[in-house]
Amino acid sequence: MRLILNVIWLVLSGFWLAVGYVITGVICCLLIVTIPWGLAAFRIANYALWPFGRTVVDRPDAGAPSLLGNVIWVVVAGIWLAIGHVVTGALLCVTVIGIPLGVANFKMVPVSLMPLGKEIVPAP
């Protein structure tokens, strides 16, 4: 079932969301100072391509620097990526088949807003 959901996800929304994260990651890496945000954007792009079967957990060693970095991320790029997830999720929820995909989009909003201090792991 995960394979089917991931393939449908990739076709309907995953590819375009991943492209948004990759563009954000490239811009962040070009600016040198923002490389940590760029690496986080690339991790989430990978997750946005194939989300079913994986989950996001908090890293236990994340502290105040991650929180400060997340605040900067929200202002610079996170809000736009979160809006992309909300709009895509709402459009997918219009159809019955798209409802699980829309819910998955809504579940990705928190990680799109605060990617630092998170880790993507296989789902139990």
Rank of each mutant, 00 (worst) to 15 (best):
T24K: 02
I99K: 10
L5S: 06
F52Q: 02
C29A: 11
M1V: 13
A48V: 07
K118N: 08
A104L: 06
R59C: 10
V109C: 07
V86R: 02
W73F: 11
I35V: 15
D61E: 14
V26E: 02
G84E: 04
L116Q: 15
L49F: 11
P124D: 11
G84Y: 01
G20H: 04
I99M: 07
W50N: 03
L12W: 12
L3A: 15
P124F: 10
L17W: 01
P115F: 10
G38Q: 11
G98R: 03
R59Y: 07
V87C: 08
V121F: 09
F106S: 01
A45L: 04
V33F: 15
N105H: 11
A62L: 07
M1P: 09
M114F: 11
W50S: 08
G69M: 10
W50I: 12
L17E: 12
P115A: 08
V103F: 14
G14M: 04
A62K: 05
V71I: 15
I79G: 00
I72S: 06
I32M: 05
A64R: 10
W37F: 13
L68H: 00
A82F: 05
L101Q: 00
P110S: 05
I79F: 13
L5N: 06
T88D: 04
I23R: 13
V96M: 13
V121L: 08
L17R: 12
P124G: 14
S112D: 09
I99P: 10
S13Q: 14
I35M: 09
E119N: 01
V33M: 06
M114Y: 02
V56K: 06
A45P: 07
V121H: 05
L81P: 07
T34D: 12
N6R: 07
S112L: 08
W16G: 01
T24A: 15
W73Q: 03
G63C: 10
L39G: 02
G84A: 03
G53M: 08
V74C: 13
G38P: 11
K107A: 12
V87D: 01
H85P: 01
P65A: 04
P115S: 04
V103G: 06
I4N: 00
V76Q: 01
I4E: 13
G38A: 10
I99D: 10
G102Y: 04
S112C: 09
G89W: 02
G53R: 01
V22D: 00
G98F: 02
A62P: 07
I27R: 14
I8C: 06
A41Q: 04
L39Y: 10
L10N: 13
A41K: 08
V19Y: 09
F42S: 08
I79N: 07
G69T: 00
G117K: 09
P124C: 03
G38E: 02
Y21H: 15
V111N: 02
I35F: 12
V121Q: 03
R43H: 13
